[in-house]
Amino acid sequence: IRVTEDENDEPIEIPSEDDGTVLLSTVTAQFPGACGLRYRNPVSQCMRGVRLVEGILHAPDAGWGNLVYVVN
């Protein structure tokens, strides 16, 4: 998935696990201090948080898609 520190920055590609999840530790390896991800909902244009359970980030209902995710 494509992740950036700010919406206007160049994104970095972060690998997902075989089950489609992303480990928070993978994100923090590239973005120290990150505690989660958010993205701009293409329909509402509002920022939406990615579900985080026990250090594992779960894809939105429509999958990770071609969105750019921003670190929290």
Rank of each mutant, 00 (worst) to 15 (best):
S25T: 10
G65M: 04
V43F: 08
H58L: 11
E10V: 11
S44F: 07
G33D: 13
I14Q: 00
F31A: 03
V27M: 00
G63Q: 05
T28W: 10
P11Y: 09
T26A: 13
A59K: 05
N72R: 12
G20D: 05
F31T: 02
R2H: 05
V22R: 01
S25V: 06
D6W: 07
E54M: 07
D61R: 11
V27F: 02
R38E: 15
P32L: 01
F31I: 06
A29D: 15
V68M: 10
S16E: 08
V68P: 06
G49T: 15
E5W: 13
G55V: 01
D18M: 11
L37E: 01
T4W: 01
F31G: 01
P32R: 07
Q30M: 14
V22E: 01
T21K: 06
V71C: 08
G65Q: 11
R48T: 13
P60D: 01
T26V: 11
P11F: 09
E54A: 10
D18E: 11
A62C: 14
V68K: 06
P15L: 10
N66W: 03
T26I: 06
S25G: 07
I56C: 13
D61L: 10
S44M: 09
L52A: 08
Q45T: 09
N8H: 14
Y39M: 05
N8P: 04
P11A: 11
F31E: 01
S16D: 02
P42T: 07
S44E: 13
A29H: 08
N8Y: 15
V22I: 07
R2K: 15
D9V: 13
G20V: 02
W64K: 00
G33A: 09
V50D: 02
L23T: 05
I1L: 05
L67C: 15
R48G: 11
I1T: 00
M47T: 12
V70L: 13
E17I: 08
P60L: 04
R38W: 15
N66C: 00
E5P: 03
Q45P: 06
Q30W: 13
G65H: 03
V22S: 04
L24H: 00
C46N: 08
V50L: 04
L52V: 06
Y69L: 01
V22M: 05
V68A: 09
V71Y: 04
T4A: 10
N72F: 09
I56V: 13
N72S: 11
V68S: 07
E5H: 05
S25E: 12
C46F: 13
E13S: 12
L52S: 09
T28M: 13
V50T: 04
Q30E: 11
Y69S: 03
I56Y: 07
G49R: 13
A34E: 01
G33Q: 10
Y39I: 02
S44T: 13
I12K: 14
A59L: 08
P11K: 06
V27S: 05
I12N: 02
V50W: 00
N66M: 03
N72D: 15
G49A: 14
E13Q: 12
D18I: 13
V50P: 03
Q30D: 03
L24W: 07
L23M: 07
L23N: 07
E5C: 08
T26K: 15
G63L: 02
G55D: 05
G55S: 04
W64V: 01
C46D: 15
G55C: 02
E54S: 12
E10W: 07
M47H: 04
V53S: 11
C35H: 10
L24F: 07
A62F: 12
P11C: 11
Q30P: 04
V50Y: 02
N41H: 11
G65W: 02
R48M: 15
G33M: 10
A59Y: 03
R51N: 12
A62P: 11
C35N: 08
L24R: 00
R38C: 10
Q30G: 03
D9S: 11
P11R: 01
E17R: 14
V70W: 08
L67E: 08
I56Q: 07
V53D: 06
V43P: 01
G49V: 13
S44D: 15
P11V: 09
R2G: 02
G33S: 09
T21G: 05
A34S: 04
Y69M: 02
P32A: 07
L23K: 15
N66V: 05
E17M: 07
V50M: 00
I14S: 05
V43Q: 11
H58F: 12
F31R: 02
N66T: 09
D61P: 10
D18K: 13
T4G: 05
E5K: 06
D6V: 07
G63W: 03
N72W: 05
M47I: 10
A62T: 14
N8R: 13
M47W: 13
Y69V: 00
E54I: 02
R40N: 06
P32H: 05
A59N: 02
N66F: 00
L67S: 11
H58T: 06
N41L: 10
